[in-house]
Design a protein around this nucleic acid. Structure first.
Lengths: 162, 162
DNA sequence: AAAGCTAATGTTATATTATTGCAATAGAGG
DNA sequence: CCTCTATTGCAATAATATAACATTAGCTTT
């Protein structure tokens, strides 16, 4: 049952466990806030959790078809927008694609590290950086509501393989 | 000739001057590095400079048509990619749109503040934030090559108008 | 100037990403 | 069980972006 092969956070981890925990957390959150964690929404989140890469809406659509769901674009986009809205997933703007959220606490300002070789996306919590941003913004009278930092680069594994 | 009405950096400024300076700087840069600052490329940069908002490729295309250029998508995309590649403009990923660069030094890691009401985009230089990011990334073995921070919020003027 | 080269632009077609509007259905709450 | 609302299914289309190839403009070499 145990499987410690997948790379995450550029480190080894038990991916099955990470998936089931995330699903459980989403389920609990939805119960608490009376949101409908429908089969479709669950399935889309599972698909995202199976990867630590960003999946495009149409890639998800293909996987949904295989799973017996309708494969019209709005099906994927609606599920994704639910997941993003409630913090279970994020959109990676520069890839026009989506990743499951890997940090439990909501309302964070994530940093995404996107490997341009293997397309792995790792999410990190922003540190003091946001304070600087807010300060710089405040100086110009701008009220920051949400920030999104996408860093392109090369991950651990891909650096080695040149 | 002088006109100090437009808002920039959420402050008043002489927009004509800011436009002509930026064009001159681009011209100088292209001369220096033997790049062709063609009429089309100049026109697209001018169009971007006339706004402090992000313009989509198809909006630019419409304006190009008015100016007598071809209005097929590749025309705009190619000019834009030239401008982005050489640091004269940036792509705002969350808007799928483009803004003229307003900071003279190249190879910076920009922060964009995007007003969700008036769609004004203001560019700021990143402060120490990037250092934090690089540190966090390094800890995970990730080599950051490029970062892009887009902050959504409400600008000075729009805060007042509720 | 002619021939040959390279970079830029023009043109056609098409790929990719995303939304609108409306019909059918399932789930929550009385 | 019935009603109401949220969700899903479906068809059409909008918006964003690129590929492939032809043409033109500007240089370079002869």
């Amino acid at each position: 049952m145990e499987e410690k092969s997948a790379s995450f956070g550029f480190e080894q981890h038990d991916h099955n466990l990470c998936l089931s925990k995330a699903i459980q957390a989403a389920e609990d959150y939805c119960t608490k806030y009376k949101l409908q964690f429908t089969p479709l929404r669950r399935k889309v989140l599972e698909l995202l959790l199976q990867e630590h890469r960003a999946l495009g809406a149409y890639a998800i659509l293909d996987l949904l078809r295989d799973a017996g769901f309708s494969s019209q674009p709005p099906v994927a986009y609606r599920a994704l927008s639910f997941l993003v809205e409630h913090g279970f997933a994020h959109k990676i703007e520069r890839l026009n694609a989506f990743v499951a959220c890997t940090l439990s606490d909501t309302s964070h300002s994530p940093i995404f590290m996107i490997c341009r070789k293997c397309e792995t996306v790792v999410e990190a919590q922003s540190l003091s950086s946001n304070l600087n941003i807010s300060a710089a913004a405040k100086a110009k009278g701008f009220e920051v509501e949400q920030t999104n930092l996408e860093a392109k680069g090369v991950c651990h594994s891909c650096v080695e393989t040149v």
